[in-house]
Design a protein around this nucleic acid. Sequence first.
DNA 1: AATGAAATTTAGACTTGTCTAAATATATTA
DNA 2: TAATATATTTAGACAAGTCTAAATTTCATT
Lengths: 216, 216
Amino acid sequence: MNTLAEENYLKSIYHLSVNATSVSTNQLAALLNTKASSVTDMLKKLAEKELINYTPYQGVSLTAAGEKIAVNIIRKHRLWEYFLVEKLDFKWDQVHEMAEELEHISSNELIDRLDKFMEYPKFDPHGDPIPDCNGLFKIHNLKPVSSIGINEGGVICGVRDHSKAYLQYLEKQSLTIGKKVTVAEIIEFDHSMVLHTEDNTIQISREVANNLLIAL
Amino acid sequence: MNTLAEENYLKSIYHLSVNATSVSTNQLAALLNTKASSVTDMLKKLAEKELINYTPYQGVSLTAAGEKIAVNIIRKHRLWEYFLVEKLDFKWDQVHEMAEELEHISSNELIDRLDKFMEYPKFDPHGDPIPDCNGLFKIHNLKPVSSIGINEGGVICGVRDHSKAYLQYLEKQSLTIGKKVTVAEIIEFDHSMVLHTEDNTIQISREVANNLLIAL
DNA sequence: AATGAAATTTAGACTTGTCTAAATATATTA
DNA sequence: TAATATATTTAGACAAGTCTAAATTTCATT
């Protein structure tokens, strides 16, 4: 199969491809916490294996084969996260690092059985969709809370920022997946927002609102 | 922490130490499927880290620190095997390779929660004891079936050979953990044995009897 | 105790994935 | 469009872990 490093590169290219047709060397270096020269070396190797389309200086994209591998790793990552939260009672801000290791456990039969054991969950603890064993998943059409107006609202279904600090903050404010929120007020000065939930009123900054995703 | 290679060396030294005070370079090379010269290199590194006692040409043994790491890896291996069999419905001959990967997942909190989730099992699917979170475990005093006489018997509690072929054979013969067996006859010619179980009579070779462990 | 066999270690090389520093290509802007 | 800034690649080095071949140590046997 592929090495751990190769898998991490493919996964990173996949994530960066969501908002672009092509991914740059520096973007990858930043995400992977490494140097541009190291990225170039690895891109040559992945191109050699026909997992990416690479023209020097022009950025990269995944081939169908590369995307398949990337989606499979993401499937594993999200299923393990679901397991850690739903079966082992971890909090949603604790599971990322463990899932980063578990996603590289090679057996597909293991992950398919884990999927079955948990009754085929469709979303991970952060609201991200879990690809099925064929790599297929639905993309929710979510909007950041910052994009809606007064008296509008919806159900929290995801986050853009997966950092521990952000997740812990949301947890403390009870702004978790499934909560219904309505915008009660928008402060003109700094665009912070006052939200109503079933049992609470909470003021959040524009930054927080920007990273909180809802379904209308 | 330690690298994957280091962990595998410590684990192997631990396993080989069960039947000896000191482990040789060649024994390790054979078990780890590598060359003696590679073993020597790694032994120097582990000695440098004070995880083993190593004098050139004199073999190695684990220090207390090294043993602690080895036992923790074995704890992880056996708990994951238990999970795979009891929760994901794998057969006892299918889980070794997966557990070889899973045992290197670093988080101790993960493994402690997995332990709790499964209600602190004491033995893995092959009857081997599972160390608790302090590294402690009871050693059953088991005997090979080949060592007992006519009309004697006991309960199958373990195996010496963990190979797929052996485990599959036992499964097919319903000679699995927990089964009660009695020796009905010993064939003088080749020391094969006729066993009675609750619902069956089975003849097994000396080789099979030698690797099948029972509690009296 | 000497000698040959077996076990072990050393020396030097290779691969993977990384790095720094230098070179080159692309983009920006005056 | 020429000059400068930025992005990317190349060149050469390094650490981890492995290998082969040669050297050395220990063991077994006479």
